[in-house]
């Protein structure tokens, strides 16, 4: 796997050179398309603002993710209890998945104010669905033969839940968590776009993007986008690392190798 880094880095270098070349030869105004060197320089100059932005967005998405992990697991546990409950609740959970987050973010700011908590909430709502749906299927899609093993030994419903269903669902939770991590960051940034610069202490990347865009600072906007991408990659790596180390025997890591 180590050898694969070389073409990956190579691809990036070629892309950056190409971008810089287009900027040099095309005479486009920097406000339309700043070159990578200019973006990098601006990022360095704005390192203080970007640092706070990354920290704020990181905190919002991590808290949002934790919240959806907690709420999602509880909802999934409830849903797994009866088919009737699933019929009553699941369609509305699906609603969370289909409603565009951009459409409800303004509503949430109305209800919860131009506050950090609103950003956390947006991040949480958008990342909730993969956790609910994955954990629910993990809890109910048990091999009937394994259930028979428990029934032969007259296991109680509680024992089946704790020793069979929950450990079985952890594999599915890990898959859901990987999807949700990316979504939570999107949610946090969308939330910050709406919460705007009313919160100066906690100007997240979304807030910075909307503020700099109004000032026509395209290079700084691009810098913030680069920062949010790096944040996404780091958060995903941390989640993967945690899952691989804490949950390895449940998540049967090798089955996921092909999906990475």
């Amino acid at each position: 796997m180590r050898g694969q880094w070389i073409p990956t880095i190579g691809g990036l270098v070629v892309l950056l050179l190409l971008w810089q070349a287009i900027v040099w030869w095309s005479d486009l105004p920097p406000i339309l398309l700043p070159g990578p060197v200019q973006v990098a320089t601006t990022m360095w100059q704005e390192r203080a603002a970007l640092g706070v932005g990354v920290a704020a967005t990181c905190a919002a998405s991590a808290l949002g993710l934790l919240l959806s992990l907690l709420v999602g697991s509880i909802v999934a546990l409830l849903l797994s209890q009866s088919r009737w409950l699933r019929a009553a609740i699941f369609p509305y959970v699906l609603f969370l998945q289909t409603v565009p987050i951009v459409a409800i973010a303004p509503l949430l700011t109305t209800w919860f104010g131009y506050r950090f908590r609103t950003v956390v909430l947006v991040a949480s709502i958008i990342s909730l669905f993969p956790i609910v749906s994955n954990v629910t299927s993990g809890l109910i899609s048990i091999d009937p033969l394994l259930l028979d093993v428990f029934r032969v030994h007259r296991a109680s419903r509680w024992q089946i839940m704790v020793k069979l269903r929950i450990p079985h669902a952890i594999r599915y939770l890990v898959l859901g968590l990987r999807v949700s991590t990316g979504l939570a960051i999107i949610g946090a940034i969308v939330g910050e776009l709406f919460v705007g610069d009313a919160v100066n202490r906690f100007a997240g990347l979304g807030t910075l993007i909307s503020a700099w865009q109004r000032m026509a600072r395209t290079d700084a906007v691009m810098g913030a986008i680069v920062a949010s991408t790096l944040l996404g990659i780091s958060l995903l790596s941390i989640v993967n690392l945690l899952c691989d180390n804490l949950l390895a025997r449940w998540s049967t890591a090798q089955e996921f190798e092909s999906q990475r």
Binding site: H153, P167, H168
Partner: peptide
């Protein structure tokens, strides 16, 4: 008390050999 061996081993994949064999005793 019956002991059953099914067509497939039906082991819990997240439990070690030891923990799989211990399961019926845990359940009791």
């Amino acid at each position: 008390e019956v002991g059953v061996v099914f067509q497939e081993p039906a082991l819990l994949p997240w439990r070690t050999v030891w923990e799989n064999v211990r399961l019926p005793l845990e359940l009791r």
